[in-house]
Amino acid sequence: MNGSIPFALCGAVLVGIGLYGVMAHDHLLRRLIAFNVTGSGVFLLFGSLSALSSGGATGAVPQALIITGIVVAVASTAFVLALVVRLKEEDVDAPAPGAFEGSSEHDDHAP
């Protein structure tokens, strides 16, 4: 058995867990956490498949791509958090019925 197969399978399961969370959770922060789990699952799958094909360590090109991916993931996480915090503040300023459902559309400033 190749040593990186457990990690590749682990990555596959993490993608599933993350996608479930993104779809099933109501709270936006929970979805964001699930989004991060999906991301690292994809990275783990990708990196361990590279290790699988080279029969040992993860290659340099996949490693560089994954580092790029991690940085882009944290950048988007920071931006989404800024949006979530601002959205919550808007809801407090002008409380709408059923505010902060996450999936519902906000139309607080309708004429």
Binding site: I5, A12, L52, S53, G59
Partner: peptide
């Protein structure tokens, strides 16, 4: 859906062979 995607990926991991790398 999550289970479907996870098992699909796991199936790929166990069956497909990757040979080429840029190393």
């Amino acid at each position: 859906l999550g289970l479907l995607i996870a098992s699909g990926l796991a199936y790929l991991v166990l069956t497909v062979e990757w040979r080429e790398t840029l190393q």
